[in-house]
């Protein structure tokens, strides 16, 4: 049970209405989880997410948050 809890993936909530596509979150993500899809951010590799919250902290548009 503990093992399955450790493997639990975070949920990255992206608000496409608010995202302006500045790519700050993509550039600052230390484990390269995010990518740009057109003018909006998308999740590329969720397994690599370490829940550091840097994308949330530096997003100027209230568009991305990481839930555990």
């Amino acid at each position: 049970m503990t093992e399955s809890a450790a493997k639990k993936l975070p949920r990255i909530a992206i608000n496409e209405r608010l995202c302006k596509g500045c790519s700050i979150c993509v550039d600052f993500c230390p484990t390269d989880v995010l990518e740009m899809k057109g003018s909006c951010v998308a999740v590329k590799n969720l397994e690599a997410c370490t829940r550091c919250q840097l994308c949330d902290l530096r997003c100027p548009d209230f568009a991305i948050q990481v839930f555990d």
Partner: peptide, 10 residues
């Protein structure tokens, strides 16, 4: 897009 004011507001 990319303006720092949003980060400061947060």
């Amino acid at each position: 897009p990319g303006c720092g004011h949003g980060i400061v507001l947060k």
